[in-house]
Design a protein around this nucleic acid. Structure first.
Lengths: 135, 135
DNA sequence: GTATATGCAAACCGTTTGCATGGCT
DNA sequence: AGCCATGCAAACGGTTTGCATATAC
């Protein structure tokens, strides 16, 4: 359950390996796959796995993971927040009908030129969200 | 104040030209400039202009304008919604420190290739948000 | 022992909605 | 007349916070 990867991942962010954090981290990166989760989803997944974690802790933990540089928040829907375990800059598919976020193949996106940052500013990130609807 | 453009813009969306809508439309497109506003900002601007419009009406009106195809909602910040008077697909700068949204020069963005929509789906929109932080 | 994490419930804040009133065509 | 827009205040939903307890180091 608690794959070695999990505790390494946590300590990589300088975070204490508490029971709750280990459980959530296992659900997020335990199998080495990238995931895009909402707080609500992770809370449900933890409950389903028999782990007792409060919703507030899920929120606090997701925020801690982001601040520790272990995850990124992706904003695609005003109603809820999505958290992505993949850290490099890459495009996303947003499935409007199911409110789901997935990775888009980064190799298929080529940005030949990009507007320069205005004077005194620098680019912190470039979000590319490809919104999908039923054909 | 109520530039001719304003009522044309409204009727173009098949919307009745009420006092409140005319006032809000004038603040949005009265001078022919593109604008990126939050509901809160527009509410404040209306009040400052001496127009009496309730906050609920500002929300309802912005949503009506979007559904009528006169504006677009842009999601860049989970906390609030931004509404853009410019309708073509174009990139945005998001100023993280001031929570401000502006247009980025569309000519400077060249997307040479884009991931194809998955089977059974079609691309509804491609959002490109260039997040800026202080240099 | 000390600093930090957790849990609960209550607060929070932007947004939406129900319903009665008023305005447009 | 009839339909639609407006305003108010109350409801809403996701997220955050205060504080007491529990845990990691």
């Amino acid at each position: 359950m608690t794959h070695p990867r999990t505790s390494d991942w946590l300590s990589g962010g300088g975070l204490r390996p508490t029971r709750q954090r280990l459980a959530l981290a296992a659900l997020l990166v335990g199998d080495g796959q990238n995931r895009h989760v909402t707080a609500e989803w992770l809370f449900g997944a933890a409950a389903e796995a028999g782990e007792k974690v409060s919703l507030a802790t899920v929120y606090n933990t997701l925020r801690a993971f982001c601040e520790a540089g272990l995850m990124n928040e992706v904003v695609v829907d005003g109603a809820r927040s999505y958290f992505d375990t993949r850290m490099d800059d890459h495009p996303h598919f947003y499935w409007e009908d199911s409110h789901t976020l997935t990775d888009a193949p980064a190799d298929d996106l080529t940005i030949a030129s990009l507007p320069a940052a205005p004077e005194g500013m620098q680019i912190s990130r470039v979000d590319v969200v490809i919104r999908l609807k039923r054909a």
